[in-house]
């Protein structure tokens, strides 16, 4: 009975305050649309950045005369005794030769014999630790030159310039995306709460009268909260419908052509839609419930 009363009150005020209700719905639509587009973009970008960072490697070249026992010893050294090691991949002379030959057949035709050493491709546990790992494997000695920690290791390389470039570039991208996302969320919250506050402000006299007649705070508040839920659902639903149309009409045809769009780590549309809908309902319900507090002090 009481729930029915509150719902009827909420619907009545949506009906009677068409213009403020429309403004609230519009602001919810706009923010949900922007977030709905932006969340996958941020995800795809940071996903791509992480993938690039994942390609940072340290190559450990053994001496060409290394025996099988040496290879085994170095592998154990890398896996068990060295810090910052993530993954170790072993590429034998023959494998390396096959690979290179396939890539550049003429040059290797001329060569005849196999000049390549056995190689360990070591992925650091975190991309940022690549340089430390290198220092670990071939520390800088007093003379300034590098010496490997094992006699079987020829050289340790990690294409230093490239690594630093990749690391700084991806860090900038991630930071920029993160701060943009925060800015957008703050802006959406402000937009929605301001719209709600304006519509409440135009009704503050009504709230005052209700208080004077002897209504308790929650008796006044519930219809406003339910109204927020209704407006949030309408706005969120509309925005999600628009997003769906956009996805089907624009994005899906392009997905096969652009790696970024097809990046596998973005959320599925269903969970994104659910998240946005819940967020818009909660934000507008809380917004109208909390903004009301000020006018309840009569």
């Amino acid at each position: 009975m009481k729930v029915g009363f509150f719902v009827r009150e909420a619907l009545r005020s949506v009906n009677r305050n068409a213009v403020p209700s429309f403004a609230a719905i519009a602001s919810v639509v706009v923010t949900v649309l922007v977030l709905g587009v932006f969340i996958p973009v941020v995800q795809a970008t940071t996903g791509a950045a992480n993938e690039v960072r994942g390609r940072v490697l340290v190559d450990v070249f053994l001496k060409t005369n290394a025996k099988d026992a040496d290879v085994e010893r170095v592998r154990r050294l890398l896996v068990d005794k060295t810090p910052h090691v993530g993954k170790v991949q072993y590429v034998s002379k023959q494998e390396a030769y096959q690979e290179e030959k396939r890539r550049n057949p003429e040059a290797y035709q001329l060569l005849g014999s196999n000049p390549l050493p056995d190689t360990f491709r070591v992925t650091p546990d975190k991309p940022g630790n690549a340089l430390k790992l290198r220092d670990e494997l071939s520390p800088v000695t007093a003379s300034g030159a590098r010496t490997a920690i094992d006699p079987a290791i020829g050289t340790v390389k990690n294409r230093k310039d490239e690594t630093t470039k990749i690391l700084t570039a991806t860090r900038v991208v991630k930071l920029a995306m993160g701060s943009l996302a925060i800015l957008l969320i703050v802006a959406s919250l402000l937009l929605i709460s301001n719209t709600i506050r304006l519509s409440l402000f135009s009704r503050r006299r009504e709230v005052e009268v209700m208080k004077l007649v002897g209504a308790t705070d929650w008796f006044i508040r519930w219809p406003f909260v339910i109204e927020g839920v209704v407006l949030g659902t309408l706005g969120g639903g509309l925005a999600i419908a628009l997003l769906l149309v956009g996805k089907l009409a624009l994005l899906d045809p392009l997905a096969s052509d652009f790696a970024l769009i097809a990046a596998p780590r973005t959320v599925s549309f269903v969970s994104l839609a659910a998240l946005l809908l819940v967020a818009s309902v909660v934000v507008s319900a809380l917004g109208s419930g909390l903004s009301l507090r000020r006018f309840l002090k009569v």
């Binding site: 208080k211 004077l212 007649v213 002897g214 008796f219």
Partner: peptide
């Protein structure tokens, strides 16, 4: 206060 006000007509 709300319950008190119900005993008043204003």
């Amino acid at each position: 206060v709300p319950y008190y006000r119900r005993n008043l007509g204003v």
